[in-house]
């Protein structure tokens, strides 16, 4: 081998190795990037929405809002009190969900919302929601929880129906479900 090239080879090696180490980081960087992307587009949004809300009422149309509730490995019964509502964009609305804890001990859960169509998420502004924090129910407790929301008048005309679906997950032990950002928790 050409000895004169040894240092040059080392430099190339170092650069390429650094590059692949960086790419390992990029894999992880995709996690927050994905939640930034989701926050911008409003997909899979969990936390409090800090953007200002437009309350200019648009009475010219009615958007059909459907509510759906699921539990994931939780001894709870969870249902929307009203399964659907017709609302005007810009109209401040309140609805309720009901949970019943069927277990003989206190259970803590975290609700995760999901929208269909997914693009609707950025127009559906939750002012107050039980999904902003964990919910703890005592044994056998029945609880009604409010959801206050506004549909942004900027909602595209062709979006006539929005489904909002919640799934309650059990919060295990001390593992805190973070509600602030959608990134993978540590």
């Amino acid at each position: 081998m050409n000895i004169a090239l040894r240092p040059a080879n080392r430099r190339t090696f170092a650069k390429l190795a650094l590059f692949s180490a960086l790419m390992f980081g990029v894999g992880y960087a995709l996690v927050p990037l994905y939640s930034v992307f989701c926050a911008v587009t409003g997909l899979n949004q969990i936390g409090v929405d800090r953007q200002p809300v437009n309350l200019q009422l648009d009475t010219g149309r009615v958007v059909n809002i459907e509510f759906d509730a699921n539990v994931h490995h939780l001894p709870w019964k969870f249902r929307p009190v009203q399964t659907h509502l017709g609302v005007h964009p810009g109209e401040l609305m309140q609805t309720e969900f009901e949970i019943i804890n069927t277990r003989n001990e206190a259970v803590t859960g975290q609700a995760i919302p999901s929208y269909s169509p997914p693009e609707a998420a950025q127009y559906f502004k939750k002012i107050s929601c039980f999904c902003f924090s964990k919910q703890t129910l005592a044994a056998g407790q029945v609880q009604r929880m409010p959801l206050v929301f506004v549909v942004d008048p900027a909602l595209p005309k062709e979006m006539g129906t929005i489904t909002l679906s919640y799934t309650f997950f059990e919060v295990e032990g001390n593992a805190v479900a973070n509600s602030g950002d959608g990134a993978g928790k540590s």
């Binding site: 990029v26 975290q110 995760i112 950002d181 993978g184 928790k185």
Partner: peptide
Amino acid sequence: AGAVTMILTDRHFGTSFFSAAGGGD
């Protein structure tokens, strides 16, 4: 390698990169 490492920590170390329960997807 990063993606499978995330699966590994989701499996054994309580992270939830890919589980909706902990805010992942």
